[in-house]
Design a protein around this nucleic acid. Sequence first.
DNA 1: ATGGTTGCAAACGCTTTGCATAACG
DNA 2: CGTTATGCAAAGCGTTTGCAACCAT
Lengths: 150, 150
Amino acid sequence: MDRVRTEMEMKGLLETFQERARALGVKTTPQRLAVYRELALRRGHPTVEEIYQALKREMPGLSLATVYRTLRYLEEMGLVRKAPSIDDKMRYEVELGAHAHFVCRNCGAILDVPLDCGACPQLQRWVEEGEVELEECQLIIYGLCKGCKG
Amino acid sequence: MDRVRTEMEMKGLLETFQERARALGVKTTPQRLAVYRELALRRGHPTVEEIYQALKREMPGLSLATVYRTLRYLEEMGLVRKAPSIDDKMRYEVELGAHAHFVCRNCGAILDVPLDCGACPQLQRWVEEGEVELEECQLIIYGLCKGCKG
DNA sequence: ATGGTTGCAAACGCTTTGCATAACG
DNA sequence: CGTTATGCAAAGCGTTTGCAACCAT
């Protein structure tokens, strides 16, 4: 349940990112690399503003608009994903696999939770009967994390 | 999977609303009743603007700010709930029990799905080990509804 | 040279707020 | 009467966009 990633994890993520970007024809400019790096570093599903603030130190000229544009573009390219908006601010994440989100009501921490779907008998019935066709699930669980509960 | 409610359903919902409002000391002004009624009428989890537009016909003087304030207030009082935001617009619903939301990627329809939680072995382990404490689940399923799939 | 990327500032859309008026108990 | 709700317009906030400068091929 750590909030930041180890160096080893980061190395793997960044390498995969560069490879996939090259394959997709996505230029890896210093700004894009920095944004992806900062996003990957944090497990906390940061807001765009948080990423911008963190990067401004090392990249004083960086513009907030660039961070917005970069994240939108990387999402279109399938290199990052939108995370659920807890407070009406845009959040992103680098995890691309299916997973749920645990949100601490107290401190706002957002943790990834492996998801083993099939919780909705009604929904399964609908699928079987051809009523709906499923594409994606987004599960958000609210509660209190270890640090915040009594 | 109907989008509007029957008269009988509406009658029950409105009566319950009035009772609960009285018990909570919430004034049932014409505007508040109208907003609740319009919200209850639609299963589609309307946006604030949609409710406002629908009511303006019968209440020409109604203000959008009042609709926003009313819904926020009713939510604080536990009489309505925020629905998941599909398009960064505020949505509300009258259903108070636990349920998931099925969202049609094509037409934007939002359907309620009874929820039988327990889909996350990892989460259950965390609860057992005292790592987290659960309060509420919000499950959004994206896909295509009957009318939109092939 | 040329297409794509960036920074800045202005614009945008949704939501909230300040204030005077009106409604309610 | 005093309190609370309403309507209107203005402000607020997060996000997007237009444009000129810039960069890399």
